[in-house]
Design a protein around this nucleic acid. Sequence first.
DNA 1: GGATCCTTCTTCTTCTTC
Length: 323
Amino acid sequence: VNVTLLLPAIQLRYILVLQCTSHFARNLSACHCLRSPKKRSPYVSVDSERYSSLVKTVMSSRVSSRTPETIQAEDENIFGPVVKTQTPSSRQDTRVPKTLHPFLHHEETVDPEELEGPGRSFVPSVTRILQQTLSPEQIFYLERWKKRMIAELGEDGFKEYTQNLFRQGNVFHSAVEDILTSGATQQEYPPDVQGYMESISHVLEDVRAVRAIESTVQHDTLNYLGIVDCVAYYRGVLCVIDWKTSEKPKPFLSNTYDNPIQVAAYAGALNNDGNYKYQVENGLIVVAYKDGTPAHAHQLSSELMLEYWNTWLLRLEDFTEQR
DNA sequence: GGATCCTTCTTCTTCTTC
């Protein structure tokens, strides 16, 4: 863009916007600099409502000419060839599930005993299915990340790092479970989760009438099961809630990868599980941060849930096909 | 009581100048 040709006022705008875009991608404190020169904690004071569309376009569109192919070529020079060669192809947007299963439960209930025939077939879980049906692109970036981490931390260091992440996630989950079941607003937590709990405190204020916690749900007709984090009312709407810990900020739903599909899968199972007598059409993904930064809460409307439900059906199809 | 399963996370780029 030839900025010099623009009028001074517009010119200033452009510079500001360009600065915002380049900084936003990695640090959300960007637009904060427009209002105050002082540095406070990152992305607390961002007017996210105002800039959300800007940030969204910046973060969702691929600007770079680098593709998985070119990156892989570069990496091969640095790390050597990848053992399992991928040919990344974008997942088809227009695909439709072969059989459209209802998201909501329809009247006639299927007796669970009836389904558990003598074969007692294997029932895969939501996470297993999602993990085994990742797109080639997802696999590529995950492998690249892992390779880089191992290069930096070593095999053992990496193992320790991931174990620590899992441990924190687990401790956080049980802390949330405790506070939601006891109802008490205790202030003291293990030091590991103190920040996370602080992070979600503003979300917890809007959570009422918990219906289920860490409950196993199984779809009566589709062959899968899972464990739902939480079913409760969030701002007056009954939701399947998924609590997440994250090192990086995830201000947009698109930053949460397959999490929305996971939530839709749980809701669909719940709605078609004879053990549960209610229907849940909405979802909520809460991303908590260790430093206590306010968590991002992503609401999933019933329309959105239906979209992700269809995506889930596709993944389920892929999974059964590959077996 | 032991074994197995589920879940817990991890990806999405750039290198220009104040």
